[in-house]
């Protein structure tokens, strides 16, 4: 396996990891107004994510940063081809990061409620942006014959908007499942009751997205293996059902594993359907750029692989260790910062 393929896989893992982990952050932000009604409850919900929050968010920087070095052609085509959606996602991510960090630095209750609204808005924008970007990528990018991006106007379609809304609800279900596992008292109880509702809504929206995609929402030739994509999306529905079932049986971490799988399968559906190309042209008769054309030169890929590779694995191990030491349900004495 060449370095280019290796890093394409690594990017897939890193970006999927980002969606699964930061999906918790955005999901908790989205259900925050509903499951946590007063300041103490809000702090409980935010600090349930607390020890993982910075680590979750940084997967995005790592996915995008390694992509700049290893698959620059992919990064520039992805971001410029879906410019407006990328901006929404980016602003959402920045807003969530800052508002979660800062809300409890204010002592007034009014200021904190304001920040909570900002957390919700940022989470909504981030979730919507990534869902829409993924759906737009499924449709393809406006490319010319040389494989360069010609514009971003084609990225805002009914399909991409629907994909954005679907991602919001899916992340919200994921966040509710997480709170069921780690929060306690009224917050955990409200989250537990929200799980079946949100999961059902996410399932219906996914089906709607699938219907729109199959009834002309996707240009011809966007998917080489539509069957793979359909199977993966049906897989999302199946694991969502498992998440609901586990939640009703009070098996909270099993439910979390199921909702995490549901989030992870969404990008897998797009990539598997388009394999081996990832960026396809929207117009017909044009050629999709091959992986090697999107990749950096082999010496620089070797440099990245041997310097960043070991550290990457080590830091992932440290994050796993952090999950292990903070795996328990919170108590009223748990450390709080957010």
């Amino acid at each position: 396996m060449g370095y280019a393929t290796l890093w394409l896989c690594a990017f897939g893992v890193l970006f999927t990891g980002y969606l699964v982990l930061a999906g918790i952050d955005y999901g908790v932000g989205l259900v925050l107004p509903h499951v946590a009604r007063e300041d103490g409850e809000r702090r409980l919900a935010l600090n349930a994510v607390g020890p993982f929050f910075l680590g979750n968010e940084v997967w995005l920087l790592v996915a995008v940063g390694t992509m700049i070095g290893t698959l620059p052609g992919l990064e520039s085509r992805l971001l410029t081809g879906a410019y407006p959606l990328a901006i929404v996602a980016m602003v959402g991510v920045v807003v969530v990061n800052v508002s979660v960090q800062l809300r409890s630095r204010s002592t007034g209750s009014g200021a904190r409620s304001f920040w909570d609204a900002v957390v919700f808005g940022g989470a909504a924008a981030a979730a919507f942006g990534w869902g829409a970007l993924l759906a737009a990528l499924a449709g393809g990018v406006d490319l010319d014959a040389a494989g360069s991006v010609t514009g971003s106007a084609g990225s805002v379609t009914p399909l991409s908007l629907l994909g954005g809304v679907t991602a919001m609800v899916l992340f919200a279900a994921h966040g509710a499942v997480f709170l069921t596992a780690r929060a306690y008292g009224a917050v955990a109880e409200r989250a537990r009751r929200a799980v079946p509702v949100l999961s059902a809504a996410a399932g219906l929206l996914l089906l709607a997205t699938l219907v729109v995609a199959m009834s002309g929402g996707l240009p011809d030739g966007a998917f080489r293996h539509p069957v793979f994509a359909v199977v993966a999306l049906l897989g999302v529905l199946a694991v969502l059902a498992v998440a609901v079932w586990c939640t009703s049986r009070a098996a909270a971490w099993q439910a979390f594993a199921a909702s995490a799988t549901a989030v992870a399968l969404a990008p897998v559906a797009v990539v598997a359907g388009k394999y081996p190309a990832l960026i396809t042209p929207r117009g017909s008769g044009l050629r999709a750029p091959a992986t090697e054309e999107l990749a950096g030169s082999s010496t620089s890929l070797a440099l990245i692989t041997w310097t960043a590779g070991p550290v990457l694995l080590l830091v992932i191990a440290v994050q796993a260790y952090a999950w292990w030491i903070f795996r328990g349900r919170m108590t009223s004495r748990s450390p709080v910062f957010y």
């Binding site: 929050f53 920087l61 940063g65 620059p72 950096g296 440099l303 990245i304 550290v311 903070f326 450390p335």
Partner: peptide, 28 residues
């Protein structure tokens, strides 16, 4: 980016990834 993308990529892993992960451990 075949040249200067490499140090940027290494930076995000060696610096940001490690820094955020360890800082969260330090805070909590």
């Amino acid at each position: 980016s075949g040249v200067f993308g490499a140090p940027l990529a290494v930076e995000t892993v060696v610096a940001f990834f490690a820094e955020s992960t360890f800082l969260a451990l330090w805070i909590f």
